[in-house]
Design a protein around this nucleic acid. Structure first.
Lengths: 152, 152
DNA sequence: CTACTTGCAAATGCTTTGCAGGAGA
DNA sequence: TCTCCTGCAAAGCATTTGCAAGTAG
């Protein structure tokens, strides 16, 4: 799609990996490309499918390294298995819809004014318990369109 | 503390277990009592400590049964391990502070007006993607008081 | 008596790690 | 060449399950 944006992304990833003495190899490119491609938090299965020929263990290791480099974030889905997405400073701040039927995760982006309100409220509540907030996440639990369709 | 409230809680749990043909046995009472006692989402380790003599496998089974009965809810903590708490219709709707230092989870309760605003916004965003919302959760990630203290 | 419970040990399945050969700079 | 990367196989570890004895009603 947007070739220049992709180029920038890969350059950014490369720079961040270098910071932690890591190289941006073909395997890692494949993982990053898959995360861009799928455009929603990916399970290990998703990545295995999109990165054929890449060993599972390597996938896990790449994800760990990319997390260290600040490129990838791991999120905990309702089913307990790991999901991975590009970090928010690369994409944009957003939240998730979690389907309790199939475990799928979709993205949502609230309005800036809503986010501001949310952040302020949460900051206040956290401070009141001696907690230093670094960020937040909001998940909506429910049933996705395809599960609702196949149910009935 | 509140004896009558505790009595009511146990009666409620018993009724809900009966609905799914389960008995409210000593082991299950111990798990429920531990969840009340600790007053924050409990790890399996927490429960093992508070329920000495109860086998791990039984703890897991009790938690599964209590979830089926609608008494307990499992939440996914940042560290990937399971945490368990009483369901919200027994306690009250609330959200969580997750310490990225030690994995601890604390509760926070936003104001009703904030909750209303939040719920409405999320409902709108979810519907826009063909998603039927059933509930939501908000987590604040950061550093708890004791981790901040021991760090420096 | 009949059905649900529970401890113990074995099994599962996602995730991590040791090791040795490969590849980038 | 020195260091980092990666596949394969083995290990780890939280969680689940088979089984047989225990217990509630």
């Amino acid at each position: 799609m947007a070739r220049s944006a992709d180029t920038d992304l890969h350059t950014l990833v490369e720079v961040r990996l270098r910071r932690v003495d890591q190289r941006y190899t073909a395997g890692r490119r494949a993982v990053v490309a898959a995360l861009v491609e799928i455009d929603e938090p990916a399970s290990i299965e998703d990545l295995a499918r999109l990165c054929p020929g890449l060993a599972r263990s390597s996938t896990y290791r790449h994800l760990a390294d990319l997390q260290t480099a600040g490129v990838v974030r791991r999120i905990a889905a309702e089913d307990g298995f790991g999901r991975f997405e590009l970090s928010e400073d690369i994409t944009e701040h957003h939240h998730h819809l979690l389907c309790t039927g199939c475990g799928r995760v979709l993205d949502i982006t609230p309005s800036p004014s809503f986010e501001r309100n949310l952040t302020n409220h949460l900051e206040e509540l956290a401070r009141a318990q001696g907690f230093s907030p670094r960020g937040h996440r909001v998940d909506v639990l429910g049933i996705c369109g395809s599960c609702a369709g196949s149910d009935r």
